[in-house]
Design a binder for these strands. Sequence first.
RNA 1: GCGAAAGUGGUGGAAUUGGUAGACGCGCUGGAUUUAGGAUCCAGUGGGAGAAAUCCUGUAGGGGUUCGAGUCCCCUCUUUCGCACCA
Length: 826
Amino acid sequence: MEYPFEKIEKKWQNIWAEKKIFDAEDFSEKPKYYVLSMFPYPSGALHMGHVSNYSIADAISRYKMMQGFNVMQPMGYDSFGLPAENYAIEHNSHPRITTDENINIMRNQFDSIGFGLDWEREVSTCHSDYYRWGQWLFKKMYEKGLVYKKTSFVNWCESCQTVLANEQVEDGKCWRCETVVRQKELEQWFFKITEYAEELLDFSKVIEWPERVKTMQTNWIGKSFGTEMWFKLEDSDDIIKVFTTRPDTIFGCTFMAVPPEHPLMMKWLEKADSEIKKFCDKVMNEDKITRTAEETTKEGMFTGRYALNPVNGEKVQIWVTNYVLMDYGTGAVMAVPAHDQRDFEFAKKYDIPIKIVIQNPEKSLVLKEMTKAYIEPGILVNSAQFDGMESVASQKAITDWMVQQKTGKHTITYRLRDWGISRQRYWGTPIPIVYCEKCGTVLVPDEDLPVKLPEDVQLGKTTQNPLLSVPEWINTTCPQCGGTARRETDTMDTFVDSSWYFARYADAKNDKIPFDKEKADFWLPVDQYIGGIEHAVMHLMYARFFHKFMRDIGLVSSDEPFARLLTQGMVTKDGAKMSKSKGNTVDPQYIIDRYGADTVRVFMLFASPPDKDSEWSDEGVKGSFRFLNRVWRLFEENLELIKENSAAKEREEAQSIFAEIKELRFSTHFTIKKVLNDIEDRMQFNTAIAAIMEHLNNIYSITETDKLNDTEKAVFAEACTVIPRLLYFFAPHISEELWKLMEREELVHEAGIPEFNKEFLKKDEVTYVVQIMGKVRGKMEVPINTSQEEIKKLALEIENVKKYMEGKEIKKIIVVPKKLVSIVAK
RNA sequence: GCGAAAGUGGUGGAAUUGGUAGACGCGCUGGAUUUAGGAUCCAGUGGGAGAAAUCCUGUAGGGGUUCGAGUCCCCUCUUUCGCACCA
């Protein structure tokens, strides 16, 4: 017989909803705890990744509820974006309709799994009551000087007349029409995230973030100390600035590499010969993906021009290449082939001179014998007055000297670039800007917000931005002079919408401001944030940037949005990520219908630690179902005994208890300790569930319950009653039902976290493992308070140990308390 | 190419601080029960030798540190995630 999960789950979901136990209370007396999982994109159906993510969040949330916290676990939808636009075109519908439909489906699915969500705070980024505040924040940022416009290159399909996202470029071609993608220069809006680079490097204000995420963000920001050097041109007064982290190699600079996009290059191109023009054209039209692909060979052409090395006046060839990028550093590289591998390969290919300026102190370098660049530190040679200096020490000396000579300066460079937020698409937050013929670029005034996305657009008729097809929306009046003006038709990157939603949950219905400061300060920072590792850098850094910006304009007081971060792994099947194209998806709804929500949750949490990928297994789900059935049967078969004895106190001395029952009592208290420790300190739910399974096995090992005396019955009952309270975090429905069967009045979380008694965890004896030269040769049980000397003696008396020690001399005996004895012998 | 992780039985995984490798679950084998299927219960299950005690071997591969290494260090391979060729 299967336990009646269907009836139980519906019943408790209704009770929870009626009692509003998941409604978080602003300014409550109880300490707050804010649990947030990254909100989903409303694709129309939950996938296993969602179930895994939200099962983790719900386990933490219910644990905190049981501890007496005022828990907030909100939910919303990241509902703008390209996929919705494409989906609507495919289904000849409108993204507004399909998105809202999808949201309704997903909301029902969340409820059918019984997640403890506070629906009063639901947000959807595509609704104007949400995105108007995104526009408001854009304006604030603009007013603060953190928004600007500049040209940058985008992937452009000539035939579709549209900008393509990187993911829409396949093998350098448009995914729809297979036209070769070109690079086109467009005016775009940028957020000055680089202003916050230094603060974003500082993680001292977060409580617990995975090291790997901090490292990835730190590397992404890429702070480097170096030298900026100014190269004069041979035949003009123009100067080329280069940035280098290796000023010690400057005397070995034999050429300079610039990208076609470099301003000087653009200038020269007018007069350049056709070969160079052709080359530049080719490089610039390579889409970013091809240009950054590993197979792409480093290519270049000599421009015929020279710069002068600022330290010795030597002529340096200027090459235009495909491997230097305009947007990092100064957009030009001083090339030192002898001491940089990429420069070395390039110089060899094009027969450019190579000059050794750092000698290997171990083995002198000989130019003709070099097969690769020497990049390690060494001793300077061919470097004028710096000859003989150690290369690392010379970096400061050379730069100091260049500062004196006014040919360079110390500088700090970040790899991080400003955030381009313009998207030439329909389904996104409109940028609240109008262009007036007289006044120029004008912000839309607060009272005119939101700038609503027009609903009546032509989707799919043309491939270009559908907003261009709505003249009545584009054409407007200038809020300053009342003259004719045009609206900005770019919309914002959806990462903007997801960069502040966590704060909106604190006050989701506010229609006067983005959110009330007091409420935001009450709830923020998010105590526990949970989401995929794929967001380690971009989303998580954009959100930190926004939070710091919001702090700086007085909207919030905290420094970081997310105090603790848990990055969960993917759900795989047959070793690969579940995806429709691979055909290896599993529909959670089917599994819920067949085995119940509790089973699915237990399986997802039991399959692997939350931060690791987990492999889906149909058989494994059955195992979780079997476990819950075993729990159910235990209560069914022993209900009277449990009910009658669960409130009973210990009636006799512990010593008088039958040994097996004493072990059961140990198991009860050990399990409590283990489960709480796994959740609180380790966030490892798989071992917590395993511990409950083990405890259940221990209970089942007591077979003749009718022969127990009163004390023993109390111990047995206690062993059972602990289960619903520990299982509640993972399988809340069945736990509530069992609790109710025991005629408890309160809900499980109101009963509080079970406590363990240290007294019952004490053991009289411990097992020592005896090793000789690292190999296990025996085991022994000794009373817990045996002295070290005694333990050594006992270890040497073990038969097997004696055998191995024959003819050997004891050099040392190491005793690890309560664990092992290691004998070092010769 | 760059950055970040991971690799343990047939399988998902456990081993929390360098201290008995394989907890717990799945699968499999044998048995009990059942008209059958299913469900349930009991026993076994890394590989090799042995009747057994026990021994040898084993955590992607190679090397090192240590009384002792899945765990720490170096190199290699493979897989996954992110990306903006980061000088």
